[in-house]
Amino acid sequence: MAKKPSAAGPTTAATAALTRAGVAFVPHAYTHDPAVTDFGTEAATALGIDAERVFKTLMVDTDAGLGIGIVPVSGMLDLKALASALGGKRAAMADLALAERKSGYVVGGISPFGQRTALATVLDDSALEFDTILVSGGRRGFDIELAPADLLAVTRGTAARIRRP
């Protein structure tokens, strides 16, 4: 895996954060269709990657504060499980404007790396079944492939089952 972005993708706050951390990653750029709102499925289809290996980054508002849940695009986030993993009892999806302001990214391009405000992060434990997974690289039409252990190390995150069955 490359340690820095190549012609395949742009330099973003996410790629800069990974490069600073010395984490190996592979950039994957694709053409985003502005009419598409299911960003994760679009990425999996455009890149020809199994949807279980492509993960979406979601910001939630819990009674314990804001947090990040990262789940496969093939599934749904279990808000109660994420709230519990973050030390709370209840969670709701964060307001879109708040998510953009806190992360520094647009919805559909929110990356777990290089966010304006570092938040507690939980990666769905299904990611640990793979050598590498893909997450947003900080723009619509741009994903980053890396090892789940590296994602957890850079975000200081934890792994837990936070997807709905």
Results as ranks from 00 to 15, higher is better:
88 G>L: 04
70 I>R: 00
60 V>L: 06
84 S>P: 07
93 M>C: 09
94 A>P: 08
72 P>V: 08
79 L>Q: 14
77 L>Y: 03
91 A>Q: 11
72 P>I: 04
91 A>H: 10
79 L>N: 13
72 P>K: 02
65 G>E: 12
61 D>A: 14
81 A>P: 09
89 K>G: 15
68 I>C: 00
72 P>L: 00
69 G>A: 09
68 I>W: 00
72 P>Y: 03
78 D>F: 03
83 A>H: 05
71 V>P: 00
84 S>T: 15
87 G>T: 10
73 V>E: 00
90 R>N: 13
94 A>T: 09
95 D>A: 12
95 D>P: 09
93 M>E: 14
61 D>E: 15
61 D>P: 04
76 M>K: 12
73 V>F: 00
66 L>Y: 09
89 K>H: 15
74 S>K: 00
83 A>S: 09
67 G>C: 11
63 D>H: 06
73 V>N: 02
94 A>S: 07
64 A>Y: 12
92 A>K: 15
81 A>N: 09
62 T>M: 01
83 A>N: 04
73 V>C: 05
64 A>T: 13
84 S>E: 15
65 G>S: 14
72 P>T: 07
67 G>W: 05
91 A>G: 15
95 D>M: 11
61 D>F: 08
71 V>T: 09
89 K>M: 12
73 V>P: 00
87 G>F: 08
69 G>W: 01
87 G>H: 11
70 I>V: 14
74 S>C: 03
61 D>V: 05
86 L>Y: 08
75 G>F: 00
83 A>T: 09
76 M>L: 11
70 I>Y: 00
75 G>D: 10
74 S>D: 05
68 I>A: 04
80 K>Q: 10
69 G>H: 04
71 V>N: 02
63 D>E: 10
82 L>K: 13
77 L>D: 01
61 D>M: 12
94 A>H: 10
70 I>Q: 05
68 I>R: 03
71 V>A: 01
83 A>D: 02
63 D>A: 02
62 T>Y: 04
88 G>Q: 05
91 A>D: 12
82 L>A: 11
86 L>T: 12
89 K>F: 10
68 I>M: 07
81 A>G: 06
61 D>N: 15
90 R>F: 12
91 A>E: 09
60 V>K: 06
